[in-house]
Design a protein around this nucleic acid. Sequence first.
DNA 1: ACAATAAATTTCAAGCTTAAAATTGTTTTG
DNA 2: CAAAACAATTTTAAGCTTGAAATTTATTGT
Lengths: 174, 174
Amino acid sequence: MMGEDKFDTSPEWVDGETKALEAPGDHRAELRLWLRLLTCSTLVESEIRRRLREEFDSTLPRFDLMAQLERAPDGMVLGEVSKRMMVSPGNITVLVERLTESGHISRTTLPTDRRVQVIALTPFGRAEFEKMAATHADWISDLFAGLSPKESGVLMDELAKLKRSVISALAKNT
Amino acid sequence: MMGEDKFDTSPEWVDGETKALEAPGDHRAELRLWLRLLTCSTLVESEIRRRLREEFDSTLPRFDLMAQLERAPDGMVLGEVSKRMMVSPGNITVLVERLTESGHISRTTLPTDRRVQVIALTPFGRAEFEKMAATHADWISDLFAGLSPKESGVLMDELAKLKRSVISALAKNT
DNA sequence: ACAATAAATTTCAAGCTTAAAATTGTTTTG
DNA sequence: CAAAACAATTTTAAGCTTGAAATTTATTGT
């Protein structure tokens, strides 16, 4: 863990005053930041889920899966979908079953390797997805409307740093 | 769907100046921002879930519920817990059942209003939670270690703006 | 060729989550 | 004082999610 750079040689804006008030191992600032991040994403996510259900009788996982397939005209292997969506393989199996039943996607066993399943949007699924995607984009735009382009840019950059930080921490712990 | 209004005869509300570089309805920047936010929170969240399970044989919802109770020495009403955690009331019922079984929390029916259930941490639950909380704080600190205090501050502020934006958008749509 | 190994996917058991309906208890009002 | 309205919670049905075990298929070393 960090924050114990007692011999910190970092820039002057880290003044003794700020540090003086913090005990070693005081992680309150990070915790607040994490809670705020989680609150924001929960607020947006649950609203999107609600609207997908009400207006399209669909769900976020279904939408996300179709979004992955939209940019893969030749389809995608299940394992790849699982990785990109950051969910477990078993999860994909269930989603694919339902989306196949409802006619939104097709699934094919690869002839050269019968372990491999390739899924792709059907024309119907693509049409449905495009309708949803356009509306979805409006929703997001709406929810984020209070941020100026400049503020969006700053947030984008800071989140990029956070993402790098998290990924690097994950990589370290084996 | 979007982009098909080739024969749109609607008024030219689009101000040529601001929108000069963007097609009407171009929400790509907001979408990217939302995806990045979601990625960050998913990365952190799933790592925290994993560690809670592996190191404490617990779950994030249980931890969150206990965290709410920690600051309420006299206990809290179920409805209040539900609101603070931003989850459905039915969800709380299940969590409370299990945490009561395992001895982490106690539940009492309010004598003055027998509809109301008050839950509180037991001494055992408090001790367990304190162990988890300390470790949890280290995990978060670790994952966020790549951000300087200044960057954390900026991110904190931008997320505050986003939170206001989302809440205000939710309030508008009734 | 063939046993061991590895890879892709599915199955399983358990728990989380939600919205809507039902239940139980309280308050307000005619 | 009832009846209606309201409030807190639980139940229900359906779907999501996971990790681990199992299954199916391919590859590799001998």
